[in-house]
Computed example of a mutant assay.
Amino acid sequence: MREFGTPITLDEMETLGLKAISALPDAFREQLGDVVFAVEDFADAETLRDLGIEDPFELSGVYEGHALIERSIEMSGTLPTRIRLFRRPIIDEWAERGDETLEHLVRHVVIHEIGHHFGLSDEDMHALEDLADLED
């Protein structure tokens, strides 16, 4: 478990993200196929603009591609599906929350972005999270 205040590199955060993916049940992990996973400090200006986000600290991760339920053979030759995490916003959110481990927060962001791969909307995922909170 990482102590608060200890700097984390891009590679270390990538390791945490890949660990979260490897912990998924086989049925989910197998459906990820060729999804590319990357960690960057911040989203680029084009991504922020496309999402209508002005403050780069407001975006901790993004799913880029078509959900499994939207894919067709006609999409061959398109860019690969990607999940990108943004290190600095995640670190800031971790510092603000102060009530969870960095590993837990990275896992949360990774699972959220994987949810988009399966066609879940943000609203669907928030509803599932709320149900999980009720069960705790």
Score class of each variant (00 low, 15 high):
D99V: 11
P56M: 04
I53S: 01
L51H: 11
E123Y: 08
A27R: 07
K19F: 05
F118W: 13
L10K: 06
A43L: 05
R88V: 07
R82Y: 03
E74H: 12
D34P: 00
M13I: 01
E103M: 06
R107D: 10
V35P: 01
L10C: 01
I114Y: 08
I91W: 01
D124T: 12
D11E: 04
I8K: 02
Q31V: 00
L18T: 00
S72W: 04
H112P: 00
E103Q: 14
E64Y: 02
I69K: 12
I91C: 05
A23Q: 08
G115M: 14
D124S: 14
D130L: 13
T81L: 03
F4M: 05
A127E: 12
A45N: 12
R84F: 02
I114T: 08
A27S: 09
E113S: 04
M1K: 04
T15S: 09
I69H: 12
E135Q: 10
D136W: 13
D44W: 10
L68E: 10
A127N: 09
E54A: 15
L16K: 04
R29V: 04
I83P: 02
D124A: 13
L102W: 10
I53Y: 04
P7A: 09
T6S: 05
E64L: 14
V106L: 09
F118I: 13
R29P: 00
F28L: 14
S76G: 08
E103H: 08
G5C: 02
S72A: 12
